[in-house]
Simulated scan of single mutants.
Amino acid sequence: MAGGRVAHPVLKGPSVVKELVIGAVLGLAAGSLWKMHHWNEQRKTRAFYDLLEKGEISVVVDDEQ
């Protein structure tokens, strides 16, 4: 009675090219998210200073008592 052969997975080392591609993609994704955040903060700051120059807002507290 012969035993059946069991297929064992072949363990290979890490693929350097695959890891470089994954690292580059993750780096670009994180960098683009950070850049979009930076642009959003710049837009808010620019809008604040534009309103300040137009006189629509003020940073001085009104003394109404």
Score class of each variant (00 low, 15 high):
Val60Gln: 13
Leu11Ser: 04
Val60Arg: 11
Phe48Asn: 10
Asp50Asn: 13
Leu26Tyr: 08
Arg46Ile: 12
His37Thr: 12
Asp50Gln: 15
Val17Asn: 01
Ala24Tyr: 15
Phe48Glu: 11
Leu28Lys: 04
Arg5Thr: 04
Ile22Phe: 05
Ala2Ser: 03
Leu20His: 01
Tyr49Leu: 09
Val6Cys: 02
Asn40Phe: 13
Lys35Phe: 14
Lys54Met: 11
Ile22Tyr: 04
Ala7Ile: 05
Phe48Ser: 01
Asp63Asn: 04
Met36Leu: 14
Gln65Arg: 06
Ala47Val: 10
Val10Ile: 08
Gly23His: 00
Pro9Asn: 02
Leu51Gln: 15
Val59His: 06
Leu20Arg: 07
Val16Ser: 01
Gln42Leu: 13
Gly31Trp: 00
Leu51Ile: 01
Leu20Asp: 05
Asn40Pro: 03
Leu51Phe: 06
Trp34Asp: 07
Leu33Phe: 13
Val59Trp: 03
Trp34Ile: 14
Asp63Pro: 02
Val60Tyr: 08
Leu51Arg: 15
Val60Ile: 08
Val10Leu: 11
Tyr49Val: 11
Gly4Val: 07
Lys44Phe: 09
Lys12Met: 06
Val21Ala: 12
Trp39Lys: 12
Val16Thr: 06
Pro14Asp: 02
Lys12Tyr: 01
Gly13Gln: 02
Ser32Met: 14
Lys54Ala: 15
Leu51Gly: 14
Ala24Ile: 14
Leu20Tyr: 07
Phe48Asp: 07
Leu20Ile: 10
His38Trp: 13
Asn40Ala: 15
Gly4Cys: 03
Asp50Leu: 12
Arg5Leu: 08
Val16Ile: 13
Gly13His: 02
Asn40Ser: 15
Met1Phe: 02
Val10Ser: 04
Met1Ala: 04
Val59Ala: 08
Glu56Asp: 14
Leu51Cys: 06
Lys18Asp: 05
